[in-house]
Every structure is written in C-alpha cells, then in structure tokens.
Write a protein that binds this DNA or RNA. Structure first.
Lengths: 244, 244
DNA sequence: CAGTGGTCTAGACCACCGA
DNA sequence: CGGTGGTCTAGACCACTGG
C-alpha cells in the first residue's frame, strides 16, 4: 500500500512533503476524513509514501499551522474540529493599494500640529495627561476622489521627527514603518456615520455609512501611533479569501 | 563570536530554532537590521549558534512565512521591505463567539423556504436561472439583543438536507461546516445602512450604520452558500491583532 | 564559478499520552 | 510500557543567483 512519489529524492515537479500534504488535504476536503477523525501517524505516512520521517513531519506540521489538523504530542493527529473560515486581512499602505489598482494617489493635508493629549488619549499612549503629541489629519484621494480620512496621533518618543515628513510625498504609514520599527499592532473595524468634518472632507453626506478602522501600533517600548481611518462605505470594502 | 545556546541539544527551555528566530527578530524589531538589509546566511548563523543547518533553516524559513524576511534562492535573505500590518481575521461561528463571551445565544427564524434563483444569484452559484435554492433568514441574538441578520442562500447540490436542521438548535454555519466540507471561502466587509426589513429585524433605526459581511463558501465542485450578514454598527466590530 | 537557499535522509533523544 | 509527535544532527544533492 505504497503511494507513488514521482521521484525517490526530489526531481519530481512537486516536493515530496507537498505531495504528502496534498494527499492529506484531499482526504479532508473531500470529506473522507471528517473532523475528529484520526490522521495516520507519521510513521504510517512515512511507510505509505516511502519518505523519511522528517519529510512527513514537515508536511503534517504545516497542515497543523494552516489549521487543518490538530496535533497532540503523545496522542496523535486528528482532523481539526472547525475549519476556521479565516483569512489574512492585510492592512497595507493606502498609497501602494491605490497605485496597484493602476490609479493615482494624492493627499490633502488638513492639519499638522502638536497638541496636549487629553486624558483618554494620554492613557492609550501610556503617557501623562497633557503630554505632547503630534496630530495630523489627511484625506487620501484615488484619482481625485476622497477614499480615506486619516486622523492620526503620534508619540514623539517613537518618531521625534514625524513632522519632517512631507505627507504629500509619503504617507504617515510609510514614514512610521521606516522610522519606528513595528513590533505590534491592533485594530478594530466598525461601521459609523461620519462626523461633520469627516463628511465634508470625504465629500459625502452625513447619513452615508462609513467603515472605520481604528489602528494602534506599537514600536519597541512605545505606543507609536493611534489612527482613525474613515472610508466612505459606498467607495470602499475590505475583501478576503480563504482557501483550504 | 558564538552566541550561547542553553544546551547543546535541546534540554533548554526554548528550542534552538526558536532562539535563532528570537535573535533575528530582535535585530529587526529593534531597528538594528533595517528593511532591505541582508540577513546572515544559513551557514553563518549555523556557525554563530553552533547548530545544524536544518535547524537554522527552520528558523529562517518560519520567519519568511511570517513575513519578516524575504528569501531568494541563490541570492540570500533580506529583511522584508514592508512589515505588512496584517493579521488573521477569524470568521467564526456566531454561536461560539457569543458563548465564549459568556453570553446566551439564541436565534429567531424569519424565513425558511425554497426559491427560484433570479439571474444574478444563479450566476453567482454557477447555476441556471430559476434553479432551486434554499433560502433562510435568521436573526441572531446575544442575551436577547439582536446582533446579526443572516440572509443565506444554499445550493441544494452541496447540502440537500439543509432544511432538516433546526436553526434554533444549530446555526447554518455550523450545519454547513459539518455537512459540506469547506474548500474555499471569500468575503467582503463594507458599511451600509440597513434595509427596512433588516432594521426592523435588528431593532435599530434605518439611519444607523451597519457592518455588512457578504460571504461565499465553496465546497468541492459547488458554490455551497452565499450569505449576507448584517451587524448593527453600534453593537459589533471586528478586531484583530498583529504581533511582530 | 562559489555561495545561496530548498529539499531530503537515516538515524537519534526526548516529553508526553494512554493503556 | 509502546506509540506519538517535537526536536535535532551531519551529512547530501539540487536549482538558482551572482560575479
């Protein structure tokens, strides 16, 4: 009961470990192996495919990372209970995103000054109330049409020269990625109606629903930046895909 | 210039490959190595840490999967240009989600019948116009408060006994995961105002912004299901985190 | 050409689980 | 206790890149 491998070593079009992965995947996605079912042990697969255990281990380990199977040391491998319908939501620099669509990105800078952090904001940054913060407000346009309102506070300790950047030539996201190495980020996506300023900056009505992403980035020991990104609901959506 | 490893083989608290990963990560997140910089070759790291090449390879390979470095065969490894601010957006069964928050999930079934697919829908399913589809409309409640409107069409070819399920006891998502093995899914998240029916079902005003997720799942050869999930903006948000 | 990463092997020791 | 997966080694051949 040995499954053929295109080549003893690796000359085949597909690496051996990929073939083992593919085999297991097919059993799962076809429903032959159902959630909770045991997956053959590494030594069993090793014999079935005639490859070394390291190779089988890599295959099954990657499937575990992908969430298709669950492994328990000492016990065995089983088909994962719930195939998580999940996917990587990539949050990219808006300039790249627009440019890759073949459109022209431009920026309108509305505000660029330092402020004293009021209580809630100071706490979010882990600073004392009244601490100095950079504050920038921009509107991003795609072929001249507003698609994102960006209201951002930046911690001077993380990016002391933030205002040296020319935001008509680079984006705050890009500047911060380059000058404050990213170590952590969190975000929240919700739906809101725009404030009067946001509606006017985005050139939409106040009753048009917007997607709002609130994003907090951490650089080393500092909370580097907190941004509120507002997208007109009619002009923007997040999309994602999930395969296998 | 040999970096210490807690143990020659692996008795230490952290596996050797994790220590190599940690070392490289620190250089990147601290800004010592900047985007575009070369990462030491596998043989260099191998000597520096006194481990085998396979171990170093695993460490750097995982960093590549995580997006921190880019590897080019024949050329070398460099620190990735843009640390993509991304994260896994997990789309989970709403029942689990609510239950895990320690709240009570319940369901109100509004519609449950078969319909003839009109043109656009038929095309999305890859079926002929007028083909039979299951159609269910539910409202999910958390501790009695509506939090999701679920309007779903299901392909009978993928789940012929869809209506055998009692949606007050299981969710369509859970039923479909169990009966139509998931092979692929795509989704779109946007902001909209609710339709009159949706507003009434969710017990909100028509002018309250909502998050809308449109999700399409594929099971084997079939488009299994297309769902429109409407969340009241004031009561729901998607959150995500991204570390390293 | 020498150096890189991609893959593979045939062993090995270990921690852990369940009987 | 035997079987499982987790990790590691010291080699090896290969495809690819660059000078």
């Amino acid at each position: 009961m040995t499954t053929k491998i295109t080549s003893g070593t690796q000359a085949g079009p597909l690496p051996a470990y990929e073939q083992v992965k593919a085999f297991v995947k097919v059993q799962i996605t076809s429903g032959t192996w159902r959630p909770g079912d045991a997956v053959p042990s590494e030594s069993a697969l090793q014999q079935q495919f005639g490859v070394s255990r390291m190779t089988v281990n890599r295959a099954v380990k990657e499937l575990a990372v992908e969430g298709l199977v669950t492994r328990v040391r000492g016990s065995g491998t089983v088909v994962a209970q719930l195939h998580r319908i999940s996917s990587t939501l990539a949050v990219r620099d808006i300039h790249d995103e627009v440019t890759e669509r073949g459109h022209l990105h431009s920026t309108r800078v509305l505000t660029q000054h330092t402020t004293a952090a009021e209580a809630a904001l100071a706490q979010a940054f882990g600073l004392a109330p009244g601490a100095e913060l950079f504050h920038s407000v921009l509107v991003h346009l795609e072929d001249g049409v507003p698609i994102q309102w960006e209201d951002r506070h930046v911690n001077p300790a993380a990016a002391p020269h933030y205002f040296d950047a020319d935001f008509t030539r680079t984006t705050p996201t890009r500047y911060l990625l380059a000058h404050a190495p990213l170590t952590e980020a969190s975000y929240r996506i919700e739906a809101c109606l725009p404030s009067p300023q946001e509606a006017s900056g985005l050139n939409i009505l106040r009753r048009e629903a917007c997607l709002v992403m609130t994003r907090c980035t951490i650089s080393g020991p500092h909370v580097a930046s907190i941004a509120r990104l507002v997208y007109p609901g009619a002009r923007y959506s997040f999309t994602g895909k999930f395969a296998l």
